[in-house]
């Protein structure tokens, strides 16, 4: 079974020691190998933070002043530019493609990071295909293969309460399902706003 989802901010997020008491962590280091290690640590931290608060999308301008990037006790913060390069590293293969830049309309944007276009991104603490696996496993465990299920009952229904994907972002849910459709594990049908799925 998947772990029960903690309700958002029911417990305070516990920051790792390097975030709580190590000032150089908030300045990107010039040495390449140190920088890579630093990127990796930031990436893990951002993913854990978003998982804890059930954040699926992150907007740089609105989170740059949040405790994630700003440590008021140390009087240290990650600059907007540095935060963007951390996220940019995460979006690449070496960072495991854990984020994906999107514009205001939610379309995926590519290319070099620019201030005006690269502000919001998906944070994949679970990538869409990983979400797909979680959902497919739940359907399998509950014996609902071949049963017609509505999107609403999967995401908001009483039956999935306590599952990790309960209450997840609609769009991400759709993407997770489409990875299953691609793999021939499910079919999606029905009209806009009244979609359903059937697992095989």
């Amino acid at each position: 079974m998947s772990q029960p989802s903690p309700s958002p901010s029911s417990t305070p997020f516990k920051f790792p020691t390097y975030h709580a008491s190590y000032p150089p962590f908030f300045t990107l280091q010039p040495n390449t190998s140190t920088l890579t290690a630093q990127y990796r640590k930031w990436s893990r931290l951002i993913q854990r933070y978003c998982r804890h608060h059930r954040l699926y999308k992150l907007s740089l301008t609105s989170t740059i002043d949040s405790p994630l990037f700003k440590n008021t006790e140390l009087k240290k913060r990650l600059s907007l530019q540095d935060a963007r390069s951390v996220l940019e590293w995460m979006s690449r293969d070496e960072g495991g493609r854990r984020i994906e830049w999107v514009d205001q309309k939610g379309r995926v944007v590519d290319g070099r990071p620019r201030e005006d276009t690269h502000d919001t991104c998906w944070v994949f603490w679970k990538r869409p295909e990983e979400w797909g696996d979680v959902i497919a496993a739940w359907v399998e465990e509950t014996g609902q293969k071949g049963v017609v299920l509505t999107f609403y009952e999967l995401v908001n229904g009483e039956g999935t309460r306590g599952e990790e994907f309960h209450g997840m972002d609609q769009e991400l849910f759709r993407r997770a399902l489409s990875t299953l459709v691609k793999r021939g594990k499910a079919q999606v049908f029905g009209g806009e706003g009244a979609e359903g799925t059937k697992f095989f």
Binding site: V148, A194, G196
Partner: peptide
């Protein structure tokens, strides 16, 4: 395949 029955069930569930 999604049959007409499936669609009817989906309608009811919706």
């Amino acid at each position: 395949k999604i049959s007409a029955q499936d669609r009817a069930i989906l309608d009811m569930k919706n």
